[in-house]
Design a protein around this nucleic acid. Sequence first.
DNA 1: TTGAAAGTTTAGCATAGGCTAAGTTATATG
DNA 2: CATATAACTTAGCCTATGCTAAACTTTCAA
Lengths: 146, 146
Amino acid sequence: MALATKRIPSAKLRSAAFKRVRADHSAELAGDYVEMIADLIDERGEARCTDIAMRLGVANATVVKTLKRLQAAELITQEPYRAIFLTVEGWKMAEDGRRKHAIVEKFLLALGVSQETARIDSEGIEHHVSTETLRAMGKFLARNGG
Amino acid sequence: MALATKRIPSAKLRSAAFKRVRADHSAELAGDYVEMIADLIDERGEARCTDIAMRLGVANATVVKTLKRLQAAELITQEPYRAIFLTVEGWKMAEDGRRKHAIVEKFLLALGVSQETARIDSEGIEHHVSTETLRAMGKFLARNGG
DNA sequence: TTGAAAGTTTAGCATAGGCTAAGTTATATG
DNA sequence: CATATAACTTAGCCTATGCTAAACTTTCAA
């Protein structure tokens, strides 16, 4: 057994990173949705299917289907043919996402990339940044006038 | 029409970022596979199904199925019950991924995060970093003794 | 107040990427 | 050299995430 476990930890350590990436991906979509719903509610008082679909660049039916999952996960509430609302849990997730997003985007700008690139890249990076890295980005911003 | 187009570009601009994230995700798995296959070939002369499965932390059958797609995409070649090889295209992708990965990981280390976190986070971030951001990371490394 | 436009939902399809269980081939050892 | 073990493949299942087309509600304006 001592022999067998000799090289399994290495594989386990390696695979851990990929497992986290896969886990991040499942959480990612939910995060994008609630963040967007929060934005819409703030901007115009309510979030509607069509607006989400337009902003995400997907079909309406896709949004409807995803919202069902979010409802099952108790992140949103919704009545048929009515606007969408966030649960307490949903708001928490949205705020968390916004915080991360803001730090990553500002960080990229401080690093010297263009506004446009910062906006686009931060969208993808946001969901793969650990607390530790986020803190390091925050420190960098503090040092560099963020 | 002037009125209508007034807010459509905004939605289009917004959705572009999400579309890129989705596109990145489809390319991501292929990138991880070819990079890992390249590593295995370098380390031990050949890449086998089982090793890939262990390192990725997925079942063997999952690897087999994915390799079929990679073969259809002409990134790898493979004979039944034999080792896996990369095509020219596959090597190109692997090298590109390794380059990106190395820069992102070194960058995170230079930013002050731990070895472990750099390893894990770079795995997720790698696929969402544009050329422009990668260049900015490179510059930062040059300034900070990378 | 009714009817058309706009928005929402349902139904049905496809692909990607997971899994387990069972079968097939290669290989290493007694 | 025969066979047990390890590696690979196939089959069949599931969920997530996309799509289009068609049906159903709501809303707004004539």
